[in-house]
Design a protein around this nucleic acid. Structure first.
Length: 732
DNA sequence: AAAAAAT
């Protein structure tokens, strides 16, 4: 077998080599089921918080050298795959190209056929070494197999990002970049901030007001749209069919949602529609389920509000208003909870102090709403707008509850976890841990992260010592559970962050398997900014009389986000993207595919805009590092797939660019929610081609977002205006 | 299409 074999079913776009991969030699030494903790590399530490510093120092250089070699190798592979790409120095290397003004990428590139790659190549002499000198890594790389103690597998990869001696390293990626320091416009530009902008600029835009709404008025098939009834359930495309197909009494419903809604066009009715479609439904989901009533636990709380129950329908009919179905929720009036403190809500002093240290001095509305019922032990569904503070809303009461349940008990070595927090991406799991861990530590509880893409040893080691709260992603949690290294039987509280996403195809079944492993009486908490009927499959099986909460009056039009849609010709897209991200603030660019995300990051680099990518084809170390570089401000542009759409919090992202429009309104809401967090302002720009206007309009309707559409060409002042730069010849 | 376990 060739040593350099590729995975049989490997992905076409493997941008990163897998360092942690075991050789067949090592695999043969290890028996299935045998812990890897006994292998030489892991040194199974004897206590939590073990830092292998003694042997780490010498190892570090070796690993870094290897990493560099691997990265260069990856670059070689990549440029071979796209050998017509303009080659130049590596992303981390010195940039010896001409100054950016001479390179230019503005209107002068209009003639460029295709417009995708504005820069045709300079000679790739700065990379020649990789082509010839690479065989030592690629073909006969003896060091990989011969080294006895493979340190990569068991080392905690993530420590590289926060290692103190990282800053001391001489190889600084950005400090010696000429084009970064030289850019004068960056520092000189006067107050690029959004505050002095006239806020809503669409109102006085001539071309907008004058437009006679041509898109809709003269479209024949929109006014008399007969196709609507013929079309096979158009708006359910993005929802999992399973909810409807296998429910017996659902099939009987005469598709009321669409057949009796003829007047979508002249919808003034929207606001006066009294009760959203849930009230007339027979509440079949819960009342007649046999396994629900039989369950013995927590049926003692009669005051509990039911989901989809009459209690929820009272005060917020005016704003419970989406095109899509929503869960009926008990709205919490922000004003009514404004006076409460975390102490009032039932949290202990240590936790309150820690929350204060985390910057949460007083509870946000969603926190005030959910903390008391969670402390009471209720199953809770909560919908809180992006950036509204959901992590603390479940994290703090979870810690308090576990603390109370453990009161008087000593922390035993090897105890099984008592709480489980599940997230759809590793980055989100990490981020949740960064909030929950300090809260837990403040009362002497321990958390650990259980997610894939990193060696298991450290995670297993933590579990062996005993952990109270687990935060992770489904795959690795199931994996360790199957290996017998993780016992979920004592879990008392399970949190599903981004619960609607976790109920989608592909996630649902792992979630069901995991939830079946925890004790029947465990408390379940489901959180998401877009909580909807999609969670029904999980709610029906696992939740008992859940209370549903949302914050009253919290709709998208009260948010602090400006939404824009730019209509462009496809051939102009690359150039327009370049000018959109050429700005001072942090910009997050979304693409639909990993390959396009990677390509865009390179494209931006090629025009002198430092950018990194975040997607599932990168190894976890690179994912974590690239996200951190945006957080640190070492790079201002991150191009990501929807791996970054949900939950990820980076301070001060003030522009989100959707290079590919999302297909689903919920995706739009989550991507948009990476900006405008905690009351800050932000702009979301979506690029579409002309033929997509109608789809885009419909999606925005579902999202309840108003956004002006503007035709745009490269060089238009509108681009600078949208990206927050001062337009030269536009009078404010 | 992406994400989530390695292999």
């Amino acid at each position: 077998m060739p040593k350099n074999k590729k995975p049989a079913g490997g992905r076409a776009q493997n941008f990163e080599p897998r360092y942690g991969k075991k050789t067949s030699y090592q695999d043969a030494k290890r028996r299935p089921g045998q812990s890897s903790a006994g292998t030489p590399g892991s040194k199974s530490p004897g206590h939590r918080g073990y830092r292998p510093e003694a042997e780490e120092a010498p190892r570090k250089n070796r690993w870094n050298a290897q990493e560099r070699a691997g990265r260069d190798e990856a670059r070689g592979i990549r440029s071979q795959a796209r050998d017509d790409r303009a080659p130049r120095g590596g992303r981390d290397g010195r940039d010896d190209r001409a100054p950016r003004e001479q390179r230019g990428y503005g209107n002068d590139r209009r003639s460029d056929a295709g417009g995708r790659r504005p820069y045709e190549g300079q000679p790739r002499d700065d990379r020649r070494t990789f082509g010839d000198a690479r065989p030592s890594y690629r073909d006969d790389r003896p060091r990989r197999d011969d080294r006895p103690a493979r340190s990569f597998d068991d080392r905690p990869r993530r420590e590289f990002s926060d290692r103190p001696n990282r800053d001391d390293r001489p190889r600084r990626d950005f400090s010696d970049r000429p084009n970064r320091d030289d850019r004068p416009r960056r520092d000189d530009r006067p107050a690029r901030s959004f505050d002095d902008r006239p806020r809503r600029d669409f109102s006085d835009r001539p071309n907008r007001d004058d437009r006679p709404r041509r898109d809709f008025s003269d479209r024949p098939n929109r006014d008399d749209r007969p196709r609507r009834d013929d079309r096979p359930a158009r708006s359910f495309d993005d929802r999992p069919r399973r909810d409807f197909s296998d429910r017996p009494n659902r099939d009987d419903r005469p598709r009321r949602d669409f057949s009796d809604r003829p007047n979508r066009d002249d919808r003034p009715r929207r606001d006066d529609r009294p009760a959203r479609s849930f009230d007339d439904r027979p509440r079949r989901d819960f009342s007649d389920r046999p396994n629900r009533d039989d369950r013995p636990r927590r049926t003692d709380g009669p005051s509990r509000s039911n989901w989809a129950a009459e209690t929820g329908a009272k005060a917020h009919q005016d704003h419970v208003d989406t095109v899509h179905e929503r869960l009926q929720a008990e709205a919490v009036d922000a004003a009514s909870v404004a006076q409460s403190s975390f102490s009032d809500l039932g949290l202990g002093d240590n936790i309150v102090r820690q929350l204060d240290a985390l910057g949460a001095a007083s509870p946000f509305p969603i926190q005030a709403a959910t903390i008391p019922p969670i402390l009471e032990g209720k199953d809770v569904l909560a919908r809180g707008r992006t950036g509204s503070g959901k992590t603390i809303a479940f994290g703090a009461p979870l810690v308090e509850s576990i603390l109370r349940s453990q009161a008087g008990k000593r922390r035993e070595f090897g105890r099984s976890p008592k709480a489980l927090i599940l997230a759809p991406t590793r980055e989100l799991a990490l981020q949740i841990d960064r909030t929950v861990q300090p809260i837990a530590r403040s009362v002497g509880l321990f958390t650990t992260q259980i997610y894939g893409g990193v060696p298991q040893a450290r995670q297993v080691g933590a579990l062996k010592k005993g952990v109270d709260i687990i935060i992770g992603t489904p795959g690795r949690i199931e994996d360790l559970q199957n290996q017998g290294k993780l016992d979920l039987s004592e879990v008392q509280i399970v949190v599903l962050d981004e619960a609607d996403h976790m109920s989608e195809l592909g996630f649902l079944e792992p979630m069901q398997r995991i939830l079946r492993l925890v004790q029947d009486g465990a408390q379940k908490l489901l959180f998401s900014a877009t909580l909807d009927r999609e969670v029904a499959a999980l709610v029906d099986e696992f939740l008992v009389e859940p209370a549903v909460y949302e914050v009253a009056g919290e709709s998208q039009d009260t948010s602090t986000i400006d939404h824009r849609v730019l209509v462009l010709d496809h051939r102009d897209k690359a150039e327009i993207l370049n000018s959109l991200v050429d700005r001072d603030g942090k910009t997050l660019v979304f693409s639909r595919t990993r390959a396009y995300a990677e390509m865009l990051a390179e494209q931006f680099e090629d025009v002198g805009i430092p950018a990194v990518a975040l997607h599932g084809d990168l190894n976890q170390g690179k994912r974590t590092r690239n996200l951190q570089r945006l957080t640190d401000g070492k790079v201002r542009v991150l191009v990501a797939t929807d791996v970054a759409a949900r939950g990820i919090h980076v301070d001060d992202i003030d522009l989100v660019v959707q290079a590919d429009a999302p297909d689903e309104y919920k995706t739009y809401l989550h991507r948009s929610g990476r900006t405008g967090r905690a009351g800050r302002t932000g702009t979301v720009v979506t690029l579409i081609t002309r033929q997509r206007r109608r789809r885009m309009t419909e999606m925005l309707e579902r999202a309840e977002i108003e956004a002006p559409f503007d035709d745009v060409r490269p060089g238009d002042d509108l681009l600078e205006e949208v990206s927050g730069r001062q337009a030269s010849n536009v009078d404010a």
